[in-house]
Structure formats: structure tokens, C-alpha cells
Design a protein around this nucleic acid. Structure first.
Lengths: 152, 152
DNA sequence: CGGGCTGAGTTCGCTTGACGAACCACCCTC
DNA sequence: GAGGGTGGTTCGTCAAGCGAACTCAGCCCG
């Protein structure tokens, strides 16, 4: 038997996807990281159906990934906007990883649509796997998965 | 207008999700990273409907993320198994990122179901954002997104 | 005050996708 | 050549996603 024995039912990947794996959820978060906060702006840039967008925003708020913040522009009635919580901000690496993969394999003529740079020094940024001892791993093959809760 | 102007239609996140964003796709890949290769094993550990699993495996093969490899165990007929290509292996960071997030926010009683360790030194591994100048960024706020193809 | 506009949803048919269960073909072992 | 396991396909049902139309609250202009 080649695959490791462990309890898939509490897999963190499955859990994360149960929360943000529905259609549009991660794209909503992508826009949130780019500064989009208002319903109409999400709707316009994403092109998602309104009903779906309503549902995704509500779900993300319920899950504590976004929070509704009341605000009032001058000469307009009070509205609320959607902002990332820390829980939401912590999804950033997942989006960066997907973006990096898409940049590598889907970009046409090497034209990357969006580049991430270090705010302080301006240099391009990438994801790296590092261990507690400080080694930077070269790839997935340097990783050994260790089940902590075997099924028995 | 707060959000940056850029061409969402070729966003790498959306592109990546169009390829691996369907239900079960990333879970299939999770198992592939853990060594699962055969249809029946995917079906058993995931519990996904057969028809869906067939479709996801075919899609992943078409997309070049998995490849079908014929093999023959002794005393058995020839079968084929599904193995990760380099394109598939490069999705590893995305799964690690989702797993890390799930570990942090969804694990009950701090029990993390699966731990990743450096194969060489045995130390736990985590994802980090680093820039070309070698700085390790502390979080999403240290990142500045730079659109490369403005919509005009 | 009356009517229009706008942002934020909600409702409605329709179509697509996911689901579990049953069915099927191949080829091996006995 | 009977039985069984692998690797699917087919089928009917049910949930989800879809675009378009409708709603509603509040501000603005006249």
C-alpha cells in the first residue's frame, strides 16, 4: 500500500476548500487583496452573478474571513464595505501560490498580468518552502509528509 | 477608485482555478502528493463519485498535471496509474498554503492531521514570502501588487 | 412633494454539475 | 469457464450556478 494512512475527514486542505473552495470565493479574495471593498465593485470586476456574489460575501463574513464595515461617503447614505480580517489575510499565500502557478503555465507570450514586489525594496517576491533550521527547500520532493492522527 | 486597473480576464488566479478549481481536483492532487496513484485508491480515500473522479482525472491528464503511466504488477494484468508531472508538482505550494491555513484555523484542539518536514533534517517546514534581495516578508501587507497590462 | 437614480440584494426559470447506485468490459486467477 | 477486481460509464435525481428581471431604501433634482 503506497499511500500513507491518516484521517482524511479532518484534512486541512479539504477543510480550507470547504470554506473558500466554492466558485468565486477565491476570486473575491483576490480582489479584496487588491483593495476592492464594495459590492458593486466586486460585481463589476468579477462579472459574477449578483445572487452568487451575495452568497459568497455572506459566507466569507460568516466564516470570519471578511468583515462588514459601515461607512458613509459624503452626500450618500450609509453603506457597508467588506474588509479582510486577519483570517482572510492569512489566505494570501494560497492566492500567491495559485497566481505563481498560473503565471508559469498559463501566461501567454510571457506576459504576466500582475507582479508582486516587496513594498520596502521593490524587488519581485516569490514563495519559498523553508524549514525551522533555515534551509530553503528546492521543491515538493524535499518534503516528507508525517501523519499525526493515523486511522489505526 | 481604490482598486487597481488591470485585465482580470487573464488573471493567473482565475486561470489556475479554471484548471484545478473544480470540486475534488485539488483533493485528487493532495492524494497524488501523498503517493496515491491508482483509480481505486483515489476513489476509496476520497469517497468521490466515480463519474466525477473519472472526469477530474481525465481533465488533469489533459491539462498535463497528471500523466497516465502503464504498469504491470507481477501476476496481474497491465494497468495504468496516475502520476504527477512537473506541472502538477508545481502546484505543491498552493496545497501547502491551503493546508497551513486550515491547520491554523480549522484544526480542533490543536491537532494537526498532517505535518510537513524537511526530508534532510526532519525539521517542520513552512511557506515564506521572500524577495529577490533575500528579505523574508512578514505578510501580505509587505507586498505591493504591480499591474503589468493595464486596461487603459 | 414626486419621480428618478443608484447601490445592494432577491427572485425566477433554465442549464450545468454533483451525487449515489447500478451497470459493464476487460482480463486475471482458480 | 466461473468468479472477482479494476476501471470505468450510464442514469435519474438533486443542488448549484447562470443571466435577466424585479425590489427596496435612501438620496438628489426639480
Amino acid at each position: 500500500m503506497s499511500e500513507a494512512q491518516w484521517d482524511r475527514s479532518r484534512c486541512s486542505v479539504a477543510g480550507a476548500l470547504a470554506v473558500v473552495g466554492e466558485k468565486w470565493s477565491l476570486l473575491v479574495l483576490r480582489e479584496a487583496f487588491l483593495g476592492v471593498r464594495r459590492f458593486a465593485d466586486f460585481q463589476r470586476v468579477l462579472g459574477a452573478p449578483r445572487a452568487v456574489l451575495t452568497d459568497r460575501l455572506n459566507t466569507l463574513v460568516e466564516e470570519g474571513i471578511l468583515r462588514r464595515v459601515p461607512y458613509q461617503a459624503q452626500g450618500e447614505r450609509q453603506r457597508h464595505e467588506y474588509r479582510l480580517t486577519q483570517k482572510g489575510i492569512d489566505l494570501h499565500p494560497a492566492l500567491v501560490a495559485l497566481m505563481a502557478w498560473g503565471d508559469r503555465y498559463l501566461a501567454e507570450d510571457g506576459e504576466v498580468p500582475l507582479e508582486l514586489r516587496h513594498r520596502d525594496c521593490g524587488e519581485p517576491v516569490h514563495l519559498a518552502l523553508v524549514c525551522e533550521a533555515g534551509h530553503e527547500l528546492s521543491g515538493a520532493r524535499d518534503v516528507r509528509p508525517v501523519p499525526r492522527i493515523p486511522t489505526g
